[in-house]
Design a protein around this nucleic acid. Structure first.
Lengths: 223, 223
DNA sequence: TAGATTGTTAATCGATTAACAATC
DNA sequence: TAGATTGTTAATCGATTAACAATC
């Protein structure tokens, strides 16, 4: 688990050599900054200080300045960071500047809520397919999408260049959808169900865990 | 930010002295373990190894054994950890063994999905009130709950001993609901919207960020 | 100029890991 | 017994923080 970003010394301008990888921690924090910056931009803000970023992310402001200064001098003393510019720079660093296509599974209440939300769109993700197993739902329109039968999954992954699967199905259906995604070659899965999913090692499952997040918050704020 | 749990030496049996606090990292990880253990139990599993816990949480197995052994000898060599027992022990450590009441805001698709899910119930949280501002929705039944007018918030927080607010409203409404929660004395807020919320320092906001989580996953699995 | 905030250093602390004896 | 997995050590690495000069 080498940290190729070093701790800053010989790196002054943007240097993320081709084969190198950010450490897990740095990549996680940069993603958080991006989330806040994107929303701040949406709200019409033009600059933001490390102090403000800290309030929204719960990450120490010195840590934030350190993370960013490792890749270049992005800020302006006395002013802060230009949001527009910083968003672009972080996207370059994370190499996720492009467009990424998502397949959404489950056209129930949660699935519809996700399909109608712009939480993914704001970050360059596009939901290009919506699947369900329930025949009663197939063909139904949800926003701009038409609910498709899950049997067309493999073909859709190829045709639509889907790189992420989002599970908004009942827990009982999550594993079989996952198996289909894995077979189709999708390696990133976002799981809104509680199901513990069995996947091969090359596949990355991220499970939403609001209850665990709350337990953590409660520990500090109620005790 | 002292870590009162130390790194294990003079602590052998359960010792979380009254005033002491877990470090942020330990509390976060224990919450993750709890999430996986709870689901594994639901699936009928009786024991689990640090290796398996690692696969589901992406936390190093040695780290897991270290975290747990700081509070007692919870495992059995050659076997693993008894899930039922470990759940109880971690709940004691996190001091969140009891029941916690939640107020849910927003009776739209997302709100209904949350109200009908057992993701919170499985961890000792109970949604005891569901609020909306839309007069057309007030009085509507969602599961066992009746949608109430948000004007009754302050009273409900007192009567129902609500300690957590969950926001499933449109982004544009999130700040005003938050202000109401803060005024009513709620200090833990789970935010499903994208809105950056302004709160006093004693209030803890946790914002759901599936897109940021995906960006992070994509960095490692597509590059 | 005065105030604010970055970029950076240096020091400390916690997380991470490999390795392995203990023991179920 | 043989195999598996915990509990624990020791060594290293990354995160965290305070502090402050640089500079907008």
């Amino acid at each position: 688990m080498a940290n190729p970003t070093g701790s800053g010394q010989e790196e002054n301008s943007l240097l993320i050599a081709e084969g190198e990888r950010l450490s897990l921690g740095v990549a996680a924090r940069l993603s958080r900054y991006l989330q806040v910056l994107t929303q701040a931009r949406k709200m019409g803000r033009e600059t933001i200080s490390s102090q403000e970023l800290s309030e929204y992310t719960h990450i120490n402001p010195t840590q934030i300045r350190r993370d960013l200064s490792g890749f270049g001098k992005f800020g302006k003393r006395g002013v802060g960071y230009r949001i527009e510019f910083l968003v672009e720079e972080i996207r370059k660093i994370l190499r996720t500047a492009g467009h990424h296509n998502i397949a959404l599974f489950g056209a129930g209440k949660l699935g519809e809520a996700i399909a109608n939300s712009d939480v993914f769109a704001d970050h360059g993700f596009e939901i290009v397919a919506l699947f369900d197993v329930d025949p009663a739902r197939i063909g139904k329109k949800v926003g701009a999408l038409t609910v498709r039968d899950i049997s067309g999954l493999k073909e859709a992954v190829k045709l639509d260049q889907i790189v992420v699967g989002v599970l908004a199905v009942p827990s009982a259906a999550a594993q079989s959808v996952t198996d289909g995604l894995v077979e189709a070659g999708v390696t990133v899965i976002f799981n809104y169900t509680e199901q513990l999913l069995q996947v091969p090692p090359e596949v990355n499952v991220h499970t939403s865990s609001p209850a665990a997040d709350l337990l953590y918050a409660l520990y500090f704020y109620l005790s």
